[in-house]
Deep mutational scan, measured.
Amino acid sequence: MFYPNSPQTSPQLTQIPYGQQYAMMQRQIQQPYHPFATTEPQARLYPYHYQGPIQQEQGGFITQQSTAASPQYVQMRVTPVDQSIMSGYPNQTANGSSSSSFNYNIHPQQQQQQQQQQQQLRHHAMPVGSVPLQDDRYRKQLIVNYLAPDVTSTDLHELFSRFGELDGARIIYDKQTNMSKGYGFVYFCHAEDAKEAVERMSGYEFHGKWLKVGYSTNPLNIVPSNSSPYVHAGSRGAAG
């Protein structure tokens, strides 16, 4: 039997160049792979992502010199942007860049009308829970959420009447099932009393439920100042 490094198959040491006398086997001759043993700084910083320098080929596509990437890492192929796409944008300079302001050559009167329309939209648009300043009635009506099913309009009136005089209180019921929808409205005579009720009743436990109280901004629920107070009856038909 002959071994790869046996004296019968191995040459004389004098015939082997210096430095390879003890590297006779194939696994010894093959050098191990060192990912950080390279002179390129990109490979030292990113050993798993770097795959060699990027070269520009004919046709405008950018390719990489090395083989496919590892399945664990996804390499994105980048193509140059066609400058003709950006030619339609206004205020574009000769080098292809555009300024931040756009001039669509709008007539001054049209621009003024658009600004007025935007101001009107901001004036009428009102986020949930906010209180408008032009109508004091919005500051007097509250919406009470997360009410228990057994709470009546009379219970709601008695709960909030300790903060001040009320114009009314009612629970909203479903017309088909005649069941409470879980929320109601309270109408105060003074805005200061309503503000105190919002601050003190939010998070209050009532009939096993934690109440959420806020201003009601729905104009359909506003009680006119010259109208008669609501009837605080315990029956659902009268309260709904």
Score class of each variant (00 low, 15 high):
F2W: 09
F2D: 04
F2L: 14
Y3A: 11
P4W: 02
P4T: 10
T9L: 08
T9H: 09
S10C: 05
S10E: 07
L13M: 12
T14S: 09
I16F: 10
G19T: 09
Q21W: 04
Q21H: 06
I29E: 14
I29P: 14
I29S: 10
Q30F: 14
P32V: 04
Y33C: 14
Y33T: 15
H34P: 08
T39S: 12
T39R: 13
E40W: 04
E40Y: 07
Q42M: 04
R44M: 03
P47G: 07
P47A: 04
Y48W: 04
Y48S: 15
Y50P: 13
I54K: 15
I54Q: 13
Q56S: 07
Q56K: 12
Q58W: 15
G59R: 12
G60Q: 12
F61M: 14
T63N: 10
Q64Y: 03
S66I: 04
T67W: 03
T67L: 06
S70P: 03
Q72E: 07
Q72R: 14
V74I: 12
Q75F: 00
M76P: 13
R77Q: 04
V81I: 05
Q83C: 03
I85S: 11
M86I: 11
S87L: 03
S87M: 08
Y89W: 07
Y89A: 05
P90S: 07
N91W: 04
S98K: 15
S99Q: 06
S99P: 10
S100K: 14
S101K: 10
F102R: 15
Y104W: 05
H107K: 10
H107L: 07
H107S: 07
Q109S: 08
Q112G: 10
Q112K: 12
Q113G: 07
Q114T: 09
Q114N: 09
Q114E: 08
Q117R: 10
Q119M: 12
Q120E: 05
H123V: 04
M126F: 09
G129P: 09
P132C: 09
L133E: 07
L133Y: 10
L133I: 12
Q134V: 12
D135G: 04
Y138I: 02
Y138C: 04
Q141F: 00
L142K: 01
V144K: 01
V144R: 01
N145G: 00
P149N: 02
D150Q: 14
T152C: 09
T152K: 07
S153Y: 15
S153I: 05
L156H: 01
L156V: 06
H157I: 15
E158S: 11
F160L: 02
S161R: 12
D167T: 02
G168N: 00
R170Q: 02
I172K: 02
K175S: 12
Q176I: 10
N178S: 14
M179C: 05
G182H: 02
G182Q: 02
F185A: 00
F185E: 00
Y187R: 01
Y187K: 00
Y187A: 00
C189R: 15
C189A: 03
A191P: 14
E192T: 11
A194P: 01
V198D: 00
E199G: 15
R200M: 04
G203S: 02
G203D: 03
Y204N: 11
F206V: 03
F206C: 03
K209R: 07
W210L: 09
K212D: 01
V213I: 06
G214R: 00
Y215R: 02
S216G: 00
S216N: 02
T217D: 03
N218M: 01
L220M: 05
L220E: 01
N221I: 13
N221L: 14
V223N: 03
P224A: 04
P224Q: 06
S225E: 06
S227R: 06
P229D: 07
Y230A: 03
Y230L: 04
V231R: 08
A238D: 04
A238G: 04
A239R: 14
G240H: 13
